[in-house]
């Protein structure tokens, strides 16, 4: 049975830092993180805006595991204080965003983890991370045949034999 996990003291930031958030993962792990770090997430920012001013302890339940959440926090921590065009809600949507070297190393994980990270990033509305993950996945399927794509990404072929052999039939617009 999942139980409440006491917060590791080493994760508690020192005095003078920004407000604290308590993030609760789906496996019931509690992670304390500075609001500043997670400000890249528009979802978190919107939630924080709703907190009452007097309340100094803020918890947000998230529907993904602590393993994934920690990766997202690692990303946000790395880019803390950085300006990334993709995360600027006021900026025009960038075209093809640049490949960041650190992101490539950060996302050098197995397929399942990559998919979990992109889902978490989408949920948390961190556009820069979604973009980097999307690029990594796009690279995986680049130049591949349909069958290879299914194999790489674990997608089931749910076409009927008729559909598979006359795919233009659905293309009616």
């Amino acid at each position: 049975m999942p139980t409440i996990v006491s917060v590791d003291d080493s994760t508690v930031p020192g005095e003078g830092s920004s407000r604290l958030l308590l993030l609760v993962s789906s496996d019931n792990k509690h992670i304390v993180v500075e609001e500043d770090i997670m400000s890249r997430s528009r979802f978190i920012s919107k939630q924080v805006e709703g907190f009452e001013a007097t309340s100094q302890r803020h918890a947000i339940l998230l529907p993904f595991s602590s393993f994934v959440l920690n990766k997202v926090i690692e990303y946000c921590s790395h880019y803390r204080g950085y300006y990334l065009l993709e995360d600027d809600p006021d900026a025009a949507p960038p075209g093809r965003s640049p490949v960041r070297e650190w992101d490539q190393e950060f996302l050098d994980v197995d397929r399942n983890m990559l998919l979990r990270i992109i889902k978490a990033a989408h949920y948390l509305e961190i556009k820069s991370l979604v973009g980097s993950c999307a690029r990594a996945i796009a690279d995986m399927i680049r130049g591949k045949t349909t069958e290879e794509m299914r194999e790489i990404l674990g997608v089931e072929n749910d076409f009927t034999p008729e559909e598979e052999h006359s795919p233009s039939s659905k293309c009616t617009g």
Partner: peptide
């Protein structure tokens, strides 16, 4: 878990989706 900080209140505001 916040014992190191001088926070008296023990009330948390939690925002979450209904589905959770």
């Amino acid at each position: 878990p916040f014992a190191e900080h001088p926070i008296q209140a023990n009330r948390y505001s939690i925002y979450c989706e209904e589905s959770i």
